[in-house]
Amino acid sequence: MFALLFDPSAGAAGDMIMASLLDLGADEKRVRKAVESVGCTLEVSRQEKGHISATRAQVISDRRYHSLEEAVSILKSSSLQEKALKKALAALDILAEAESRVHDVPKSRAHFHEVGALDALADIAGSCEAASSLKADRILSRPISVGGGYVQSAHGLLPVPGPAALEILRAHNIPWMGGPVDDELLTPTGAALLAALVDEFVPRFPLIQAERVGYGAGKKDLATPNLLRALKARIVSPTRGAGMDHQKDRVVQLETNVDDVTGEVLGHLIEELMQAGALDVSVIPAVMKKGRSGNVIRAISSHEDMSKLAGMIVRETGSLGVRVFPSLHRFVAEREERTVDLNLAGVTYSVAIKISRMDGSLVNVKAEYEDCRRIAKEAGVPLRMVIKKAEELGWRAADK
């Protein structure tokens, strides 16, 4: 499995993330085009920080955007490809949500302080395009060092991390620590990008074989090298026959019984739980006490998301309690995402497929439902035909 790994031991900012990915070999033409398409220019150079040679990515702009709606419009009109655009919009939404909570105003009216500068939007666009061009199966990060001391902001003199960055760390359960210097090391843009791009924050990197190391230089000169280190690596699996311990993790199971909740509410709950981080959700018909019909709601969750998801179940259903079955072992197949080109009546469509392997052997191929549904509607053909053809292409691609 090919992974990108961030090591933000000296914090993170938007320009540092983009620079570290460029140093790893991201497609500079695509990144430059993305930055220019939001109205900025990009200067890429080499710098030394603490005697380490690094890439410096500097966005040039003197314009600002004034609202979330305007920023979304700029991104949607940019050159960002589909996956990169989705991540960029997610990072922007994370920023808006943080500002709205800090100021207690609707997200649509959030004031974007320093992130309102167009160069911050270009950092988001460039970083997301860079990450997309590297085609990682998974993106991991170690905990973020945020610095220390105080920072002068639009709110006055405040302790590090600043309000917006701290809100992003809180809302997305991102692990962080103070130090290693008394200075602001994590910007709101950096926090939002890591929240949007990273699949998992880990206390230490897994067993890997590093293929390349990239360094992104920050603006400041600090007592410690102001660098964001990124790695392109293969996550090492044991040899076949050595067991499947590398594919096992620990999860909790949340469960409650309900007998007075409508199907519409249950459907809405499933969507909300999945968006909030549930690993799986199911609703099972059951016969309750006194012969009443009802349902068992069951959700699989990481330990970190357990309390949040249990609270959502109680709020949405009115349940008086949620049972927790802790420390369940879960064997997990290795997962990979690819794209196949499906030709229908002379028109070519791109379909995302998910490939599952266990101990190196191909287990399953599944076409992305939303892609297939969109194509079926556009081409005027049955959905089941689109799914079948896409998965046939997927099986052939997975065997190569």
Results as ranks from 00 to 15, higher is better:
residue 55 T to H: 04
residue 246 H to G: 10
residue 322 V to W: 05
residue 329 H to F: 13
residue 191 A to C: 09
residue 1 M to I: 08
residue 238 P to T: 12
residue 193 L to A: 06
residue 287 V to A: 08
residue 182 D to K: 07
residue 314 V to W: 11
residue 160 V to N: 01
residue 135 K to Q: 15
residue 190 G to R: 02
residue 67 S to L: 09
residue 364 N to P: 08
residue 357 R to N: 09
residue 230 A to P: 13
residue 370 E to N: 10
residue 153 S to G: 09
residue 192 A to C: 10
residue 218 G to N: 04
residue 67 S to Y: 14
residue 364 N to G: 11
residue 196 A to W: 10
residue 191 A to Y: 07
residue 399 D to I: 13
residue 183 D to G: 10
residue 79 S to R: 11
residue 155 H to S: 04
residue 125 A to K: 02
residue 95 L to P: 04
residue 336 E to Q: 14
residue 366 K to C: 14
residue 121 L to A: 02
residue 185 L to F: 11
residue 9 S to V: 14
residue 246 H to V: 02
residue 62 D to R: 12
residue 240 R to E: 10
residue 271 E to Y: 13
residue 148 G to T: 04
residue 170 R to D: 13
residue 48 E to M: 14
residue 175 P to N: 03
residue 209 Q to H: 15
residue 172 H to N: 08
residue 302 S to K: 07
residue 245 D to A: 15
residue 276 A to M: 10
residue 35 V to I: 12
residue 283 V to H: 01
residue 277 G to F: 14
residue 198 V to T: 03
residue 345 A to R: 13
residue 368 E to G: 05
residue 78 S to A: 10
residue 202 V to L: 12
residue 48 E to F: 15
residue 21 L to Q: 01
residue 154 A to R: 10
residue 246 H to Q: 09
residue 295 N to M: 10
residue 115 V to T: 06
residue 317 T to V: 00
residue 394 G to Q: 09
residue 95 L to E: 06
residue 188 P to D: 05
residue 6 F to V: 00
residue 32 R to L: 11
residue 251 V to N: 03
residue 340 V to F: 12
residue 143 P to F: 14
residue 144 I to F: 13
residue 325 F to G: 00
residue 128 C to A: 09
residue 179 G to N: 05
residue 82 E to L: 14
residue 187 T to D: 08
residue 185 L to N: 04
residue 222 L to K: 06
residue 231 L to Q: 03
residue 5 L to V: 11
residue 9 S to H: 15
